[in-house]
């Protein structure tokens, strides 16, 4: 009898573990969705802290320029080398500018910029808000009659959503320029041909899809960064865990969103 009970108890334990974790995950998703709705309300409801918005725009946009610029520049260079080595075997090296520009504009620039900002900006948002939470600064704000969602969250989300498309637009140019440098100066392709092919291949819908992705990634990573910061618990260790969660979850969400938005634009183009 007891021999039969042992596997049943183990099975029950496993099911309880899976059930408990699933339930917690559903609760967390619900809480993030609720936070997202509250953030949108905070953005549209006055007062709007314009000075804080500009400060965040500077922090997210301007100070991220070197990171995004270098990432996209070198990605464009690598893309040119890899495309050439893959396509020259079948005599299709002339398609190199087209491949590089489409890859950069539609995929590489938005995704890489999103991932870079998840690490640089998302983690910083969580650490900053998390520290404010555990040192009761957010509670203090409440008692002074200031809504922390409007004062702390709304400017960050809006700044991230606006700054990322601008960074990606710059990243697009730098990525293509990286491809140009390799194609023209290393692989010996004709400069005018390269530019012509790039301009031919760039359709408005491709550029638009890349910028849409950037805005969606900016919104997502700032929501996740603010959510985990706002709900940090347990001192420095808690803030550390929250920061890790922000980077991991926003990176995964960026990749999932990338597929969803690509699929939507793919259907539109058909």
């Amino acid at each position: 009898m007891s021999l039969v009970r042992v596997p049943i108890n183990i099975l029950r334990l496993i099911l309880r573990l899976i059930g408990g974790n699933t339930w917690r995950m559903i609760e967390e998703i619900g809480a993030i969705f609720r936070f997202c709705v509250l953030s949108l309300i905070a953005i549209v409801q006055p007062p709007f802290y314009f000075r804080l918005f500009l400060q965040q725009l500077l922090n997210v946009g301007y100070y991220s320029l070197p990171v995004v610029g270098l990432t996209t520049l070198f990605s464009g260079m690598v893309m040119a080398l890899q495309t050439y080595s893959g396509f020259s075997g079948v005599g299709a090296e002339a398609t190199l500018p087209r491949v590089v520009s489409i890859a950069i504009v539609r995929e590489l620039a938005p995704v890489l910029a999103g991932l870079m900002l998840a690490g640089r900006v998302g983690a910083a948002m969580t650490a900053e808000l998390g520290t404010m939470r555990v040192t009761e600064q957010i509670d203090a704000m409440h008692t002074l009659g200031i809504n922390p969602m409007r004062y702390l969250v709304a400017p960050r989300i809006l700044a991230c959503t606006i700054a990322l498309p601008i960074l990606v637009a710059l990243g697009d140019s730098l990525g293509i320029y990286g491809g140009y440098l390799i194609a023209v100066y290393k692989l010996g392709l004709n400069s005018a041909n390269f530019i012509d092919h790039v301009l031919d291949s760039l359709q408005w819908i491709g550029v638009f899809s890349g910028l849409c992705k950037a805005a969606a990634f900016g919104f997502t990573l700032s929501i996740i960064g603010c959510y985990f910061g706002f709900h940090s618990r347990g001192g420095a260790a808690g803030v550390g865990i929250a920061t890790t969660n922000t980077v991991v979850i926003s990176s995964i969400l960026i990749l999932i969103l990338n597929f969803i938005i690509t699929e939507i634009f793919f259907q539109v183009q058909l």
């Binding site: 404010m132 040192t135 009761e136 600064q137 509670d139 203090a140 704000m141 008692t143 009659g145």
Partner: peptide, 21 residues
């Protein structure tokens, strides 16, 4: 908090660790 402020005016609070910004 807004309704509280509107009804009773500001509320002052001194936190244990001051909670300065």
């Amino acid at each position: 908090q807004k309704q509280r402020t509107r009804t009773f005016g500001q509320i002052g609070m001194l936190f244990q660790n001051a909670a300065l910004f």
